[in-house]
Amino acid sequence: MKTLAHAALALPTHISLAHGGGGQLTDDLIRDTILPRIGNDTLNELMDSAILDVPAGHRIAFSVDGYVVHPTCFPGGDVGRLAICGTVNDLAVVGGRPAGIALGVIAEEGCRRDLLERVLDSAGEAAREAGVFVVTGDTKVVGRGAGDGIYLTSAGVGFVPHGRNLRAARVQPGDAILINGPIADHGLSVMLAREMPELESAIESDAAPLNHLIEDLLSELRDDVVFLRDPTRSGLAGVGADLAVACGHRVVFEEERIPVRPSTRHAANLLGLDPLEVANEGKVVAVVRATASDHALAVWREHPRGREACLIGHVESVPAQMPPRCELFTRIGGRRLLAKPYGEQLPRIC
């Protein structure tokens, strides 16, 4: 057992290539920096793979995502929080109860240790909020300039109870579309931190694990929930456009009902962005049977991540000779197509 003083001496302020070499320094990094933050009985065993018991009558949901956000830290979160929330939410929206996360850390040589600590602290906190453990992991270091501080990869396994069937094919005309709160906070907080660091904004990323919120909805409404999707990178517009194509119907959002915080709306105006196309990391869109929408809203509003939940649209059948599509009913009573955005969101001036 090392003494505290010894441990303090052993902690360099920056990550070096040797920390990723698989030798003693890697062991030190894992023991002193990683395990105290995200450790648990399974991870602490440091096995090459985690072994999970699958409950009877469940299928396995399996998901992976890379997290390369720049800047690493932004108002309301950082890459660590994002990596856990993103994977937990990807599991939850297909009906999975997150059962274990695998976290891969790729640090750039010269990355400050306190940055890594902050990121791991956030990952640990988000995992505790979600009630899920990081059960296995990996640490690599790449040369200076070959990365951007810290990249994370997180894969997750979730157990899907028998009978859960959340698929766009079940969506029918008449179904109601709900969201659990205001949109565009995540994408704008990151973009402002990156593009306009001199701007001080009240906007904070909404990054949050939504598995409890989703589980509450699914256990209360069961089959009346037909489809769930988290509106991440291409925003609500992307979810709507994809859903229309996948279900073959007309997806209609009502602009007036879509919640956007005033400061977020104004920041979007400043940068020439459409909040509907901006990413979220703590939002989920649910399609439920129309008769169940009030119940669904009541369930969500009981939950801290769903207090501002609201009905934002519905599904209609497609008129003859028209392709499936997503439409926005605007606040002045107009109607327009809502298309999937094309790529990186660029601030616009002129």
């Binding site: 306009m196 001199e198 001080e200 906007i203 104004h266 920041a267 400043l270």
Partner: peptide
Amino acid sequence: DAHSNKLP
């Protein structure tokens, strides 16, 4: 200040 966004 543009609605809680403070910018130069």
